[in-house]
Design a protein around this nucleic acid. Structure first.
Length: 640
RNA sequence: GCCAGCGUAGCUCAGACGGUAGAGCGGCUGAUUCGUAAUCAGCAGGUCGGAGGUUCGAUUCCUCUCGCUGGCUCCA
């Protein structure tokens, strides 16, 4: 007589002989439920998972989010099966699900071509069509090692020996077997809507000194529609690509003549930056910040003192002048510290909030450069706050408030906030870390922002808060960072004279809200898809005379607008009105004013709004105050 | 930095067993004076990313180099 195990599902409790698959219960659960897996506490179990001990289970269907992960994980096995079948001798590495799909790493002499990907994808469909059962196996470690060694899968053998206990789980489908914890779908037939997307290099176990593998990326969904939607999303992202739009709209320019990672802001990008910077400065003044300007280079000794020469890898090599070595600055902090130390500080003048749009140069590895999002010369919207312990929490609160105020103005309403705490290797006093972490946490709590705790993920010199913003199509971008710094305050022996007449060490907060002008601009271009709101649009209104004789009138309107500080242009090309409108729409100019005989007679203009079409004729006197108000309010939409 | 791919006119891209190159858009000129997303015609733009090599001859093949792209690793 076999031992019985109690399985609770919903309100019912079933008894199963130990070792029987949980799927034996499926008929009992009713035909309307079509589970792919079971959830038991924190665990996800295969349908075929053997009843091992008393548990409560809940069926998981395709409509639940965790099912998608499992689908993709199973799809990655399918990918590995297809590849090992089509390309004998190829070794499989690892193949997990990701947020958007899955990948699998392979060791192969020759590179996979796009044609290979097509063949692999087709083979995946064939195998899936065969609806092979995916079976969980529990093998003795030596046995598993033998299985993979026989198949020439040395990487798998390495993984098993490293990670496996006495027994290891493997999953088998057809003649393919993989070392894997699971769980998986019941059979390959569930994997229907798949797409292989790209192939790239990846290091074995993430070690850049280890062997280089080829990583094939793919995605999978439970329905054709979801797959189509995802592919449409990728297409949408491609259309928004700031590198493309930056070129088309003449916002910024890169050139071989400059060198990698160096960017020129074209006039249209520069006016936007100017407006962002003005706004940034005004908001900082409102919050009691002072401004600092600092040079782009300083003596190498300064960077030795700060520890950058020793610990910071992305420094440009120093240059030598008159026997003295100078270093291009990768950060602004030491300069602000020098300013702080220019004289003795009293507790009465703290907090000091010093902000700088500071341009820094970092020798980023060539392979990581990416449009405006990762460059070698960029301007941080930096600030350093020097404060007393009793001021710290309020200061952090103020920084968070300011950050959100700024980000909201650009239409970023969704954030992911992270609090990263003390790592294993750290500098500074433990009690300072505790105080600082508490201050950061309290500030976050009072901000009302939901946040995630990243235990032990802080930088060695202090805990930090990072804020990622979600753009118009849901992608996350890291911009805001607020970091305590116990390293520099120590190295530079920062102090202030307290009420008690003794020297004290101030807390030093380093923060950037937009991150860098370059990265923020790149994100902004994609967020708006090049359709900048009225207050930021490089050209706010273009005036289109219908015929030559209307040009004078068009220019009158233009100068009227320019006098009122609007950015207006006249299109005096000899084109037909349709062409001029098309051109203006392509340039994504928010306001288009058409003027002809009718408008001259009426002293009016015919307004067309980008994205809204023709809005009809109106008087300039009634329009102008409305426009000024929209600009003043930094309105994200044009409602007239 | 590593793996893979790419680099042809200002832009988007064709192209050629190795015999020095085209299209559309844009630009310029002329005609057209026009009412809400492309008027017509003509012209001018290229040491085919750069350097070296193989060759009678290279933009095409090879090597190096610079830049870009997708990732890895690292980051604002």
């Amino acid at each position: 007589m076999k031992e019985l195990v109690k399985i609770k599902a919903g309100k019912c409790v079933f008894s199963l002989p130990k070792g029987r698959p949980l799927s034996d219960l499926l008929p009992e659960l009713g035909s309307e439920v079509k589970p792919l897996l079971f959830r038991s506490g924190d665990e996800l179990l295969d349908l075929s998972y053997p009843a091992d001990h008393d548990r409560e289970i809940r069926p998981v269907t395709a409509s639940e989010p965790e099912a998608l992960d499992i689908l993709r994980h199973s799809a990655s096995h399918l990918l590995a099966q297809a590849v090992t079948e089509l390309f004998p001798g190829v070794q499989a590495g690892i193949g997990p699900a990701t947020d958007t799909g899955y990948y699998y790493d392979f060791l192969r002499e020759t590179a996979f071509t796009p044609e290979d990907l097509v063949a692999i994808e087709n083979r995946m469909r064939e195998i899936a069509g065969g609806d092979l059962p995916i079976q969980r196996l529990v093998l003795k470690k030596e046995q598993a090692v033998r299985v993979f060694a026989e198949r020439g899968q040395a990487l798998k053998v390495e993984l098993i020996e490293e990670k496996g206990g006495d027994e290891v789980t493997c999953y088998e489908q057809g003649n393919f077997i993989d070392f894997c914890l699971g769980p998986h779908l019941p059979s390959t037939g569930y994997i229907k809507y798949i797409k292989l997307l790209s192939v790239s290099g990846a290091y074995w176990k993430g070690d850049e000194h280890g062997p280089q593998l080829q990583r094939i990326y793919g995605t999978a969904f439970f329905s054709q529609k979801e797959l189509d939607d995802y592919l449409a999303f990728l297409e949408e992202a491609r259309k928004r690509d700031h590198r493309r739009l930056g070129q088309e709209l003449e916002l910024f320019h890169t050139s071989d003549d400059l060198g990698a990672g160096l960017v020129i802001w074209q006039p249209k990008g520069s006016i936007i930056r100017h407006l962002i910077e003005n706004f940034w400065k005004e908001e900082h003044l409102k919050d009691g910040y002072d401004f600092i300007y600092s040079p782009h280079i300083a003596r190498l000794d300064l960077w030795k003192k700060s520890g950058h020469t020793e610990f910071y890898e992305a420094m440009y090599p120093p240059l030598e002048l008159e026997g003295c070595q100078y270093q291009l600055k990768p950060m602004n902090c030491p300069f602000h510290i020098i300013a702080y130390k220019s004289r003795q500080r009293s507790y009465r003048e703290l907090p000091l909030r010093w902000a700088e749009l500071g341009t820094v140069y970092r020798y980023e590895r060539s392979g990581v450069l990416h449009g405006l999002l990762r460059v070698r010369g960029f301007t941080q919207d930096d600030a350093h706050i020097f404060c007393r312990e009793d001021q710290l929490e309020d200061e952090i609160k103020g920084v968070i408030r300011l950050a959100i105020r700024l980000l909201r103005a650009f239409g970023f309403e969704n954030y992911q906030v992270y609090l990263a705490t003390r790592p294993e290797k750290y500098v500074g006093r433990l009690e300072d870390w505790d105080k600082a972490e508490k201050a950061l946490e309290e500030a976050l709590k009072s901000s009302g922002l939901p946040y995630q705790l990243d235990e032990g993920e802080g930088v060695f010199y202090g805990p930090k808060i990072d804020i990622k913003i979600k753009d118009a199509i849901g992608r996350l971008w890291q911009c805001t960072t607020v970091q305590l710094d116990f390293n520099l305050s120590e190295r530079f022996d920062l102090s202030y004279v307290g009420e008690d007449g003794y020297f004290h060490r101030p807390f030093m907060v380093h923060r950037a809200l937009l991150g860098s002008m370059e990265r923020f601009f790149g994100v902004l271009i994609e967020h708006y898809m090049g359709n900048f709101p009225l207050w930021l649009a490089p050209v706010q209104m273009i005036i289109l005379p219908i015929a030559d004789r209307h040009e004078t009138y068009a220019k009158e309107i233009q100068s009227r607008l320019v006098t009122e500080s609007l950015r207006a242009r006249v299109d005096d090309s000899r084109e037909k009105i349709g062409k001029k409108i098309r051109q203006a729409e392509i340039e994504k100019i928010p306001l288009i004013a058409v003027v002809g005989d009718k408008e001259i007679k009426e002293g009016s203009l015919s307004l067309r709004i980008h994205g809204q079409g023709d809005r009809g004729e109106m008087k300039i006197d009634t329009l102008l105050p409305k426009l000024k108000q929209l600009i003043q309010e930094k309105s994200l939409e044009i409602k007239i």
